[in-house]
């Protein structure tokens, strides 16, 4: 099994990998704005080209992206079909038995399909494929830092994320152990109806919860022993710094955003 703490992170050396996590979060937000403002044919084409360019820059094999799209294929097909058949418009593209397909429907279907695909691909590039969860947590803590003045416990949330990431592999290992132990005593997890199967999970969940509470308590003591006091006068080993690169990427995305808006306004072609 792939290391779950890395999520879908692919270590690498590309420009995107070297970016500050905060800059990547901001870039992702600008990118999402681009996706939702692109509404004309020209803008969508421009967006598609830009997305492919970003994917190539990341240095991650295209097959990985295609695999990433697989879980959303169904949603993609469904939204496209719904748009195609349900949209009522003025110009009928073609008619077959009781099915009437309008040009507007075709437009909408294409628009939604491109939007969903680019949205998933783009946010994957910035947030999961080129950024490790730990870096993402650090970036979030730093970006949301100002909220702590409004008494939002930003540091505590980030510490919880860090600890969760640390303990997920441990809990998986432990679940495996408990399952083996229960199987050795004759438990059966793989037969019977849904109710029976859920009931069979109880003897796994209860020991797992008990040991998790015990772990949590021991960890709390260990953290206190290491002088943890929450966010009181705490420093960080790794200091996040924006570099020239981060500004270049964020600026390029802003240019992309203005380009898409301009195309929408000046070349409002929707039909094909």
């Amino acid at each position: 099994m792939k290391d779950i703490t890395l999520g879908q992170y692919f270590p690498g050396n590309s420009v995107l990998h070297k970016m500050d996590p905060r800059a990547k979060l901001i870039s992702a937000i600008i990118y999402i704005a681009v996706v939702f403002t692109s509404s004309s044919a020209g803008a969508l084409a421009f967006l598609a080209v830009a997305t492919v360019a970003i994917m190539l820059i990341s240095g991650i094999p295209i097959s990985v992206y295609l695999r990433g799209l697989r879980p959303i294929l169904f949603i993609l097909a469904l939204t496209a079909a719904l748009n195609l058949f349900m949209t009522r418009g003025e110009t009928v593209a073609f008619e077959f038995w009781i099915v009437k397909i309008y040009v507007e429907g075709i437009n909408n279907a294409i628009l939604m399909a491109v939007r969903i695909t680019t949205l998933v691909l783009g946010s994957c590039v910035f947030l999961s494929y080129t950024t490790s969860p730990i870096a993402l947590t650090d970036g979030l803590e730093s970006l949301l830092g100002p909220l702590s003045k409004l008494h939002v416990p930003v540091h505590d949330f980030s510490m919880m994320m860090t600890i969760a990431l640390r303990f997920i592999p441990l809990l998986i290992e432990e679940t495996d152990k408990i399952m083996s132990a229960q199987k050795a005593r004759g438990s059966d997890f793989s037969s019977g109806g849904p109710v029976k199967r859920v009931r069979a999970l109880l003897p796994i969940l209860i020991p797992l919860f008990v040991s998790s509470f015990k772990r949590a308590e021991e960890l709390a003591v260990a953290m206190e022993c290491r002088c943890y006091r929450g966010d009181v006068e705490r420093t960080h080993m790794k200091v996040l710094r924006y570099g020239a690169l981060d500004f270049v990427v964020m600026a390029s995305l802003l240019v992309l955003l203005s380009a898409v808006i301009a195309i929408n306004i000046f070349v409002p072609i929707y039909a094909f």
Partner: peptide, 21 residues
């Protein structure tokens, strides 16, 4: 297992000094 806080070795070692400011 129950005294390591971070997922990366050096980040965990840094936890104490970070707390000391």
């Amino acid at each position: 297992d129950n005294q390591i806080v971070a997922s990366v070795v050096e980040e965990d070692v840094a936890f104490g000094p970070e707390n000391l400011g």
